[in-house]
Design a protein around this nucleic acid. Sequence first.
DNA 1: TTGTAGGCGTTATCAA
DNA 2: TTGATAACGCCTACAA
Lengths: 340, 340
Amino acid sequence: MKPKITLKDIARELDVSISTVSKALKNSAEISKDTKDKIKAFAKFYNYRPNNIALSLKNKRTKNIGVIIPDIVHHFFTTVFRGIEKYANEKGYNVIVCISDESNEKEVINMEMLANGSIDGFILSLSAETQLKNEYTHLKELLDQGIPIVLFDRVTSEIECDKVVLNDAEIACEAVGHFIKAGSKRIALVTTEKYFNVSENRRIGYLDALKVHNFKVDENLILTLSHDMENDMLITEFFQNNKVDAVLCVNEIFAIQCMSIIQELGFNVPNDISIIGFTDGILSRFSVPRLSTVAQHGELMGETAAKLLIDRMEWLDEVEEPFKTEVINATLIKRGSSIN
Amino acid sequence: MKPKITLKDIARELDVSISTVSKALKNSAEISKDTKDKIKAFAKFYNYRPNNIALSLKNKRTKNIGVIIPDIVHHFFTTVFRGIEKYANEKGYNVIVCISDESNEKEVINMEMLANGSIDGFILSLSAETQLKNEYTHLKELLDQGIPIVLFDRVTSEIECDKVVLNDAEIACEAVGHFIKAGSKRIALVTTEKYFNVSENRRIGYLDALKVHNFKVDENLILTLSHDMENDMLITEFFQNNKVDAVLCVNEIFAIQCMSIIQELGFNVPNDISIIGFTDGILSRFSVPRLSTVAQHGELMGETAAKLLIDRMEWLDEVEEPFKTEVINATLIKRGSSIN
DNA sequence: TTGTAGGCGTTATCAA
DNA sequence: TTGATAACGCCTACAA
């Protein structure tokens, strides 16, 4: 067992002062070559590495980013996280993750915990409960303290900060347009509760498309499912009671569930009913037929969020940049579950 | 903008000494009620919170855990991570994640980075490359420095530390036994390169089961696929060229790929060919037919790993506990892709 | 060319 | 009951 070595240890062993060691290891011109060589050799031999914590305290920056996501088991968040981690790592930052589990309380507690020096900035996607309660004081306070925040995907206009969002409305509109062009007449939307900004935007896009193509809206064709419950019964009833020839689902799970139930009910996908989902995850790629889907480019979203945050953190001392909202353009991926 | 307040700030404003403030906020009996009340009120008003970094430096413990996983996009690792995060959070620890991306170099760099004070201990699953090269000096050095490590799933006997593993051989044996009981005669194994300890153990279990039931081993029925390449051609050829009535796959993706190709080739699952996979992920639950699978209980594995690590870290000063290897018992989940 | 001193924010020990 | 001081590990302005 050989514990970590410090500048002090080196100084003591080599009988020089701590600052000499510090300077020598930074290759300062102040120090004679002899001393530098001696100190460097010693440091190398004992595998000296500066202590991150001490550096953080001194520099008042930790090189840590706090990431708060509602649920890591969702493919979309996982890919965003990967993008964040990748970019952050390249830039020498570490990532501390907390999972809010869709709970406002956890979100608040975790953020306050991390905000006390552990991180330099946050990247987060709002928990369901936070969106439901519309409660953002914790974010406002952190911004007030000068801690930069980047919101992604689940964002809110109540907070002024950098954001990364998908062009949800547009792409939903495009997807519905795709259905219409292929001849669909009765297009359903399977969505979540309204307080999710993303669902709401996708709904807007859905309605827009209908309007543009002079379809009239049938509220019966909009099925709202809970984000955290078993929905099979509701879905079954929905497709039994409504004549539908196309469905846009706001996430991958809903899409796969719908497809499975639709098939069980004896309909053919895509001939009787076309389906398009959101999130180009593993489910979409391996289903039968393969699921047409909206690729959200989670990894790019993550990288973009990390870039926004790191740029802001590193420029913080200098100019005060205005807040930006980066829009990631989703892509419609046409596979077997919809007609071309 | 109101920056974070420090003990010093409070002391200055209230015209007392820093140590008085510190004691008052810890409710020390040394300080008079009056002073305490005054200081507490002030601190509360300005929302004082001790700086984590300063505490870390002082206490020589960060309350951070470093987690290194090969790939966050794999369902299994995601669930393990969730278990770690959950347990750690309950115990007041934060989790810093690095993704090794199956690369030994990244694994080494990230661990060394974090080891310089950022974390108190590691939980990791070895990268593919690390297992391939059989290179563990980085782990040895960290252990040598007194940094505790818990390995999970992808472990090695070369390193002495706490471990959490699945009873891979046993459960693979059980799965093959299940095939045999259902009448299968020609049972295939679809696996990855041998250097993965888990695949090797599952192979051993597969062979054991054959032996126990007096089946002779046909090496042609063992298909080895790369963990990072397109394997569709190989799989197709395999099922075209070999008469097979049951397949055990060492992961979920292989299982789904096999099922899809088997169906395309015109076989019925499970009547012509039964399939059992590993990892009870989202793919298994939504495939048609639903995939019989080995549930690895990732979340439990994560919690167990976190508990081992935290216990060791918190007892470190006291007794020196011997290293433990916790075995998680997998569960065979029988669904539509295999005959009962 | 090298060393001293002060500070980052906190706590603990000891002195007043 | 309160305060001064040192320490955690590092850096840096300034002094020698």
